[in-house]
Simulated assay, not measured.
Amino acid sequence: MADLSGTWLGTYWQLGIPTRFEATLLQSSNTLTGNILDDSYLGEATLIGEVMGRRIQFTKRYLTTSSTLINYSGTVNEDEDFMQGDWSIRDSDSGKWEARRSGDNLMLELRKLQEQKIPALAGGSRRGMGSAS
């Protein structure tokens, strides 16, 4: 199962017009929660959904502008750094979306360091800690 926790930068298209967004996702087992900030008047939204293997499905709800639920579905690539799919609002509107993992995922970087068994603070320096002579 893909691990999607972290920060993602993406775009969705509505009526052919792109809107950028930033998503912060938290995954626990196959449950996905998070926040999205659109680069438009729509602002901040919350999301809840699930991850099934490389498939993702979630519902987005804006906090300030509308309580209408927006359904997203898609797939995650093998490297777990890109996802894409479709979104829809009931039967009234739909479009495509995609997102790339941001390089600011500190938890992922920490896990990679741990896998490589490289201590984060290896060989700490004692410079500047004067010695008694």
Score class of each variant (00 low, 15 high):
Gly74Arg: 03
Gly74Lys: 02
Thr46Tyr: 11
Leu110Tyr: 13
Asn105Tyr: 05
Thr59Ser: 08
Met107Cys: 13
Lys112Pro: 03
Leu110Lys: 15
Ser66Met: 05
Met52Cys: 00
Lys112Met: 04
Lys96Leu: 04
Tyr72Val: 04
Arg100Cys: 15
Asp81Ala: 12
Trp97Met: 13
Leu113Glu: 10
Ser67His: 03
Ile70Asn: 05
Gln84Pro: 00
Val76Leu: 10
Asn105Cys: 11
Val51Gln: 06
Ser66Thr: 14
Gly85Tyr: 00
Tyr72Gly: 11
Gln57Trp: 04
Gln57Gly: 12
Phe82Gln: 09
Gly95Leu: 09
Asp93Gln: 08
Thr64Tyr: 01
Phe82Tyr: 12
Arg61Phe: 00
Asp104Ala: 15
Trp97Thr: 11
Asn71Asp: 09
Gly74Tyr: 03
Ile48Glu: 03
Thr46Phe: 13
Lys112Ile: 03
Gln114His: 13
Tyr72Cys: 04
Ala99Phe: 01
Lys117Asn: 14
Thr46Ser: 15
Gly53Ile: 07
Trp97Lys: 10
Glu109Gly: 03
Gly95Ile: 08
Leu63Thr: 01
Val51His: 08
Gly74Leu: 04
Lys112Arg: 05
Trp87Glu: 05
Met107Lys: 14
Asp81Cys: 12
Thr75Asn: 01
Arg90Glu: 10
Glu50Met: 06
Met107Thr: 15
Gly95Arg: 09
Arg111Ile: 14
Ser67Arg: 06
Gln114Cys: 13
Ser88Cys: 06
Gly49Lys: 02
Thr59Met: 05
Leu113Cys: 12
Leu63Ala: 00
Ser92Tyr: 12
Leu110Arg: 15
Asp79Asn: 12
Tyr62Ile: 03
Leu69Tyr: 06
Asp79Trp: 01
Asp79Ala: 13
Arg55Tyr: 02
Glu78Ala: 14
Arg54Asn: 12
Ile89Cys: 00
Arg111Gln: 11
Leu69Thr: 00
Gly74Ile: 05
Arg61Glu: 04
Glu115Phe: 07
Ile48His: 04
Thr46Pro: 08
Glu80Met: 07
Glu98Val: 00
Glu115Leu: 09
Lys112His: 04
Asn77His: 11
Leu106Ile: 15
Asp79Leu: 11
Ser88Gln: 09
Ala99His: 02
Ile48Ala: 06
Gln116Val: 15
Gly49Cys: 09
Thr64Arg: 00
Asn77Cys: 12
Ile56Asp: 00
Arg100Asp: 10
Ser92Lys: 11
Glu78Cys: 10
Asn71Tyr: 03
Ser73Val: 10
Thr64Gln: 02
Gln114Ser: 14
Leu63Cys: 07
Thr59Val: 09
Lys96Pro: 00
Leu110Pro: 13
Arg101Leu: 13
Gly103Thr: 00
Gly95Lys: 05
Met107Ala: 14
Thr46Lys: 11
Trp97His: 08
Leu113Arg: 13
Gly95Cys: 11
Ser92Met: 10
Arg61Met: 09
Asn105Thr: 11
Arg54Leu: 07
Tyr62Pro: 00
Gln57Met: 05
Ile56Trp: 02
Asp91His: 02
